[in-house]
C-alpha cells in the first residue's frame, strides 16, 4: 500500500514531515524544543556533546547536529520549525539555514530571493522537469 509520503515524492528537493519523519525525529525535535529556554541554549553552547547525550537520539542524529548538517537532520526526522532553534542559538536566521540547505552562499541565496525567489517552473515535479 502506498504511504502518505509517496504522493509527495515527486516534488523535488522536498521532505514532507509526515508520520514516518515525525516518529524518526521525535527526540531530535525534542532536543530542539529544549532550546526555547535561554539557560538550555547556554548549556548546549557550553558543551554540545554533553548536552546532546541527555536526549535518546541516534548517534547519526547527534552527529548531524554537531555538523550543523541541516539536510541530514531533515532526512533523520528533523522538522525545520524546530531545527531553526539550533540556527537561532548559533545566531543564524532562517534565511541562513535555507541557504545552507540549498548549497548556495548566503549572499547568492539572498540575491535569488530579492530577484523573486526560486521559480515554480521546473521545480514542481521530478518526473516532469518541464512543469
Amino acid at each position: 500500500m502506498p504511504g502518505y509520503n509517496d504522493a509527495f515524492k515527486d516534488i523535488p528537493g522536498t521532505t514532507v514531515f509526515d508520520a514516518t519523519q515525525s516518529r524518526l525525529g521525535y527526540h531530535l525535535n525534542m532536543f530542539c524544543m529544549s532550546l526555547m529556554k535561554a539557560e538550555n541554549r547556554a548549556a548546549f553552547k557550553a558543551d554540545e556533546r554533553g548536552y546532546l547525550a541527555q536526549f535518546p537520539m541516534s548517534d547519526a542524529q547527534r552527529q548531524a547536529v554537531l555538523d550543523r548538517d541541516y539536510n541530514r537532520m531533515i532526512a533523520l526526522g528533523g522538522n525545520i520549525y524546530f531545527l531553526a532553534k539550533i540556527g537561532a542559538t548559533d545566531g543564524h536566521s532562517f534565511q541562513n539555514l535555507a541557504a545552507k540547505m540549498t548549497g548556495m552562499s548566503e549572499e547568492a541565496y539572498r540575491s535569488m530571493m530579492i530577484a523573486g525567489g526560486r521559480p515554480a517552473q521546473g521545480h514542481r515535479s521530478r518526473s516532469d522537469p518541464s512543469r
Partner: peptide, 17 residues
C-alpha cells in the same frame, strides 16, 4: 504566501499562484 524553508527547494516562490 508561497514559501519553502527546507531542503534543496528552499526559496521556492510561486507568484502567479
Amino acid at each position: 504566501l508561497s514559501h519553502q524553508l527546507d531542503g534543496r527547494r528552499a526559496g521556492f516562490i510561486n507568484k502567479p499562484f
